[in-house]
Amino acid sequence: MQSTDYESVRRARTRNLKLWLALLLTPAALLLIVFVFIPMGSAVLYSLYEWDGLARKGYVGLANFSDILFDPVRNKVLFHAFWNNVKVFVTLMIIQNGYALVLAMLLARNPRGYRFYQVVFFLPVILSTVIVSFQWKLFLNPVFGLVNKALIAVGLESWAVPWLGLPETALPAMMLVNAWHWFGFPTLVFLAAIHRIPTDFIEAARLDGASEWRIAREIIWPLMAPAVTIIVVLTFIGSFNWFEIPYVMNGLEGSPQGSTDMLGLLFYRTAFGSISAGGSDFGHGSALAVLMFIFIFVFSILATKYLTSREVEMN
């Protein structure tokens, strides 16, 4: 008698536990399925159809993909935008992350005002990209902007050009704005990585009379490799999804003369319509999104693999 009682209590308890677990998991799972997984899956499906506005027409197989990649007009716009994204990635790696690396190495030496610098460098990171973009758009205004006023004040009249209006200077100006906005993030990630290196490594080298430059290059740099991996991958994802700064500063068409056109802008124009792309086109838009996803995903995996193997080697 005793044992069956116990058995039934146990069974009831297990049943209750199952119910309890289901209760805990359902809200989050439901939100994730409805608002993330279903849309992500549908994107692939959408790219295989022809669309007329919100209405789905016939199945077209991979035609949308081949249009984007091989149609002479579309293909030219696509690769032009893609090339600009490549420029953004490479430039940001050098000016934004390179600068951050130097700052992190300096901060790791525990200068006076160490906390203050961290807070200051992180300040632009927390601002909305839209605020930062508009702020610099005002500063770069050819007539009213502070940048040109300052250049004229110091006698560099010939440098006071309409920065966002010239095809040669618009993209570099935007990339500098991006660097101003974000450099604090890699700085503090690198700094945290340096702090995890055991101090006796560095102290021992210093006692042996190694120069700061040698310590930085031969001890700190190899041992902070995991942080470098993360920053490279995040910068890559950010560069190929670059949208807000070019959109706010120079609009949807990547003006002047397409010099600031990006995959993100092209995707938006294709999907939701614009002056140059015409009405909204969900088929080609989805195909472009799928291609971008595959490209970013594959590169991120390969980069992580390669950079991680480097980490192991050096340790």
Partner: peptide, 26 residues
Amino acid sequence: MVSMFFLAGLMLPLRLAIIPLFVQMK
């Protein structure tokens, strides 16, 4: 399986699914 399910979401950039999301939200 359940924790894999949640972690998989980490790698999906929802921006690129904006078209189906728009249709669904509509």
